[in-house]
Computed example of a mutant assay.
Amino acid sequence: MQIEVGSVINELRIKQNLTREELTKDICEPNALSDYERSITSPTIDELALFADKLKVDLPYFFTPKMNRFIIT
């Protein structure tokens, strides 16, 4: 099973009503996030850790199959 990290970022961003600009502030350019979400490129592990922090998930969440994901609020 292949997990597309960018689609997980996109899903979380939309669920949390964040724009690309809001999510990418102090991490990367919004157009880079667009490429990540469309699986054109991948974020660095450092960027991914920052996204995880902003999206309030642990880093392993991005690599968990969808049926096993949950968010603790």
Rank of each mutant, 00 (worst) to 15 (best):
R38A: 13
K56C: 02
I72C: 12
T73L: 09
P43S: 10
L33G: 03
N68Y: 03
I72E: 14
L12N: 07
N10K: 15
A52M: 07
F62Y: 11
K54M: 01
D35N: 13
I9M: 07
P60Q: 03
I9S: 04
K15F: 05
Y36W: 14
Q16W: 03
S39L: 07
D58N: 15
D58G: 07
N17P: 03
L33M: 05
E11L: 07
I27R: 08
M67T: 11
E47G: 10
R13P: 01
R13A: 00
V8M: 01
T19I: 10
E47Y: 10
F63K: 02
M1C: 02
G6E: 11
R38W: 02
N17E: 13
F63I: 02
S39A: 14
L23G: 10
I71H: 02
F62N: 03
D58T: 13
K25Q: 09
R38S: 15
M1R: 03
D35Y: 12
S7R: 12
N31L: 11
R69E: 00
E47C: 13
S34K: 15
V57E: 00
S7G: 06
R20T: 08
P65D: 02
T24C: 15
F51Q: 02
R69N: 02
Q16T: 04
I9H: 06
R13K: 08
L59M: 01
